[in-house]
Amino acid sequence: MNWDVIVSYLPLYKDGLLITLYTGWFGILISIVLGLVTALIVHFKVPVLKTIAKIYIEILRNTPLLIQLFFIYYGIPKLFGIVTDELTCGIVGLGLLGGAYMAETFRSGIEAVDTIQMESALSLGMTRRQAMFHIILPQAVTYSVPAFVANLIFLLKETSVFSCISILELMFTAKDRIAVSSTTVESLFLVVVFYLIVLLPVSIIGSVVERRLRYASFGN
């Protein structure tokens, strides 16, 4: 282990970290919005859209992100003439994949809330939409937190696939340093360290939030 090499690589990995965070968090924001909308469509059994939503979930969850990125980056321009840059492709690909996972997370959380909650809200004069956003969803969040945090960690790790379309994130930086300087140990060591810097806080904060919400649900 050459520590001088590691120190000299730090600026490169810092730049890779910033790109990882940029693509990762924008992709996650898209996935949250898309997942919530999809979950509501499936939950309320919206005609036609429910079938489309289920097909979307099954296809995206059962195909690798690598294949999805290749399709978006290489396939869509040939089929439809829509050309995207690498960062846009990565963000959209991650958002679509995450949306499928988030949809199932939110759907399971919504369905975990007792149906009497909706019935009680409707009997008090609330509309179904008001009941969903003011009564059901806040409770569903508490059930969804563990799976939601797991999805966040999973999606942030999936950014390592972005190197296949030449996005200069952490894994691309490591591969580049290994190819140029043959510093395999140092390069992979730095990848592990920088991913831990990103993912450990997410895991710890998620655990704290989960415990607080769990206790709150019992009135403690």
Rank of each mutant, 00 (worst) to 15 (best):
H43Q: 11
F106T: 10
P47R: 11
L79Q: 00
V149Q: 04
I136L: 15
M132I: 10
T51K: 06
L168C: 10
I116P: 03
T105Y: 11
I91Q: 09
K50V: 14
L34C: 07
T127L: 11
V46M: 05
E158V: 02
F162M: 14
W25N: 08
V83M: 03
I136A: 14
H43T: 07
S203W: 09
R61D: 09
V193C: 08
N151M: 07
G35E: 06
K54F: 03
F172N: 09
I76N: 05
Q130R: 13
L17C: 08
R128Y: 11
V92F: 15
V46I: 14
T142R: 15
G219K: 11
L21Q: 05
T173N: 03
G109H: 12
F26S: 13
Q139N: 15
Q130A: 10
Q117N: 08
E186A: 02
I19G: 01
Y215R: 15
L87E: 14
C89V: 15
V83K: 04
P77Y: 00
G27V: 03
I72R: 02
I57K: 00
I205V: 15
L152Q: 01
I72W: 02
L87Q: 14
L69N: 08
S108D: 12
A121E: 13
I19A: 04
I55T: 08
S120P: 12
L21A: 13
R212A: 12
A140D: 14
G95E: 11
D114Q: 15
F70D: 05
T173Q: 11
E158K: 05
T38I: 08
Q68K: 05
L152V: 01
H134A: 10
L17G: 13
R212M: 14
V145R: 03
M1A: 03
G16P: 08
L21P: 08
V161N: 11
I67F: 09
V37R: 05
F194H: 02
I135R: 04
I153L: 04
T127C: 09
L40S: 05
L199F: 07
V192F: 14
L29K: 05
I82L: 09
A103G: 12
T173L: 01
V42C: 11
I204Q: 12
V149S: 02
P64D: 01
L66K: 01
N2P: 03
E111K: 10
A140F: 11
P11G: 05
F148I: 07
L122N: 12
I116H: 14
P201M: 08
S207C: 02
S207F: 00
S182R: 10
D4A: 06
M1E: 00
V208H: 12
T183K: 04
L60G: 09
S120M: 05
K78C: 06
G109N: 12
F194K: 02
N151K: 03
